[in-house]
Design a protein around this nucleic acid. Sequence first.
RNA 1: GGGCGAAUAGCUCAGCUGGUUCAGAGCGCCUGCCUUACACGCAGGAUGUCGGGGGUUCGAAUCCCUCUUCGCCCACCA
Length: 895
Amino acid sequence: MTEPLAPQYNPSAIESALYAWWEERGLFSPDATAPSPDRPRPYVIMMPPPNVTAALHMGHGLNNTVQDVLVRFERMRGREALWLPGTDHAGIATQNVVERILAAEGHTRFDLGREAFVDRVWSYVHATGAAILTQLRAIGCSADWTRTYFTLDEGLSGAVREAFVRLYDEGLVYRGHYIINWCPRCLTALSNEEAEKEEVEGHIWHLRYPLADGGGHVTVATTRPETMLGDTAVAVHPDDERYRALVGRRLRLPVVDRLIPVVADDAVDPAFGSGAVKVTPAHDPADFEIGRRHDLPSIDVMTPDARISLTAPDRFQGLDRFDARKAVVSEFEAAGLLDKVEAHRHAVGHCYRCHTVVEPRLSDQWFVRMAPLARPALEAYRDGTLTFIPERRGEDYATWLEGIRDWCISRQLWWGHRIPVWYCQTERCGVTSVSRHDLSACPACGGEVRQDEDVLDTWFSSWLVPFSSLGWPERTKDLARFYPGHTLVSAPEIIFFWVSRMIMSGLHFMGEVPYTHIYLHGTVRDTQHRKMSKSLGNGIDPLEVVERYGADALRYSLVAGMAVGTDVILDPRDLEASFAPGRNFANKLWNAGRFILSNLDGPVRPLAGRHRDVVRREELSLADRWIIARCDAAVREATEAYQRFRLNEAAAAVYRFIWSDLADWYIEQIKPRLYGDVPGGDVARAVAVQTFDVALRLLHPVMPFVTEALWRRFPGRADEASVSVSPWPRPDARAADTDALRDFGLVQELVGAVRGIRAEYAIQPGHTVRAVVGAGTSSASLRLEEATVARLAKLSALEFGAATEGVGGHAVLSDGTPVFVPLGNAIDVGRECARLGAELGRLDRLVDSQEKKLSNGQFTSRAPADVVEREREKLSSWGEQRSVLARKRETLGCR
RNA sequence: GGGCGAAUAGCUCAGCUGGUUCAGAGCGCCUGCCUUACACGCAGGAUGUCGGGGGUUCGAAUCCCUCUUCGCCCACCA
């Protein structure tokens, strides 16, 4: 700790060592903080488990930085803090990755067979070694890695089975024959949420179906003509006069040459299109319902990979659905049965993993009955148990729950939790058994059983994570201690996949919501507001940023660029613009710390407490009192902002305090005292060290590395001490010194006024000038910091009370104190007149509007008294400044 | 089709409960400085119809209405 610090902060030299040290010391464990006496509940955040094979991208960076800031803040506030990490087996996504690798080798999963394929996925998963967790360490995430789970672990797999079996026993899991969303590329069913609706420019074809007995036709409209191969009826509205006579008659389905009835059904909207709808029960959910009501046959005309099946005429068999579409349309056209084609914009579902157009398909799947689970979840929102940040996201949640549909949970994949259902193969028994344990024989007849081939939706394991990761269904200590958690940090698009489902499962299985605060941050976008993505090539690699600018810079930029509920915009073409501010800030802090450290000479006197050597109030200079008050204000602002999830404001408050107050003013102010030219070095050191210490702590949640590196170097730190578990600074009523804030503010004004005059007249930096401060209310305060003003404004002398008229630069402080910098013929009187004139004009306008406001009886009588009083004070201050300036102009001889 | 959000300096954005943070920050730009913590720095400076229009109010960047332009979410009008 004694080696001299480099003048430039080099994050890559210290970050990994610091991180390793934190981790070794167990600082990320909830046991790292001694529980406070009032024993608040532990603070728990469940990390959204990244895909086990994922590489860290900016979305992860943002999401995990937010969580880390929150958990570090709460840890320092003395709560037992647990940030529980894990990885997700991510069924489809991971299976797809491995299938692509196989394809490159010229194989499919079917060549390998199920068992070998799953082994292959496991070895892939082991080989990638959840690299993303290492990457999360690189950005400083303080998760408790000793508790890391994987959704396909034995424990979590047990929880999945337990949940499935319980829900089945309660009648909430059932097997059904319905239209589901099918991905013809992934060859699996998808939930409604996994089929992403996207607006596309399509067409709507109007097709004529002739009446079987001749005498005209009915025109139907469709966006998917190929499905007509499976039509088994045409439906019209029962009250539709146009078609009343046709109901019950038969149509000859063109191309296929099948007779189909015209049926009447309320679901048909007579106002849309021709008012007649082709009915394809096997390929459309609405048609499926119509088919049920009218007992229509379902003809599935497609294979799993969306080619036309053997149920269609020979010439279509094997055609891809989109080729079949063209073929069908051209046959209609050739037969003169194509009425018209219109452009049509409509929403089409796409697979959320491979983006293939989803095909509605009739099949047997397992479902979760959602309405009974949604009811309490909705209630928890309505009764205020749940808090959404930003608030409006709560309405998205509620709207989704109100319209919730049953959840299709079976997937025709090989990678995932096998559905715990066994079918008896004995013909006369045929019992279906749902079991927590693998079955080798039918419990009913002892005959052979076959396990359901399908696996469960990935989200069926993740929705249990808030308790399954703590050992449920076992009653573990962790479960008792850490459930329910507190905050869930996620992106809005995950609300329906994960957030709401966790709330439902938490209420159902644990009787309590899994967390009470749901913080939904924005999306990371480029400057064209496009989402960062691999395919667009507009991504920024967080690890590259860490390498070039440091993890703290990355985190600072993400946090500072994000107000509640807004997106984070970063420029992939200009990393410098996005990340240099954070790097610069870290460097600024580093150098401030370096300066303070290099000026220590022995023990630092405490600012408070019973210590014999405590700094007494009367020993503090105005500047000391001011920085202590500013520090206290920063504590209040930052603490409140962190608590309200306004991380950008917390960062800004600390930034301002460190850069604008501590570095720009206080450190400059104390230099003479430190160098021994002026007495009081010990007090200055004490104040500097202790306010800097507060600054480090306030900043630590956002910039953990540089703050820790500096904090540990200060004298009196035990070898094992870490800022990450040091107590959060408390506001101190005695520190809030409004007099000091006002008086030092005048010192800053005076320095600024002289600097402005010097710059205006290009006074050489090495050249000192004289300044005169006229009689005014602030003279006494300014005298206290006379030396500071003289040094910072480069004055040869600062005089009080002498005449402030003459040839030179002029200014007035906000309390009306006149300032004069005699410059003789160094200035151009005309220029000074113009300068003062502009300032006078500004004050004129302020005074005028203020007078108008105050002479308005409506205002003085209706506005609150304190507001009126403040406005009066403003007027008198501006009026005073104006008259001082006006006098100065007169004596300068301005026109 | 329904719902939501955004529009403020050249760029990215703060501005919360209407009234000194009221017109701000960072970046960029201009001028001068290698002043014994920091040139990733210091000092000074320029730049705005607060998207348009209307309204409420003593007072509007802030609240309401409307229009325009972007963005997001939801949706079985085939």
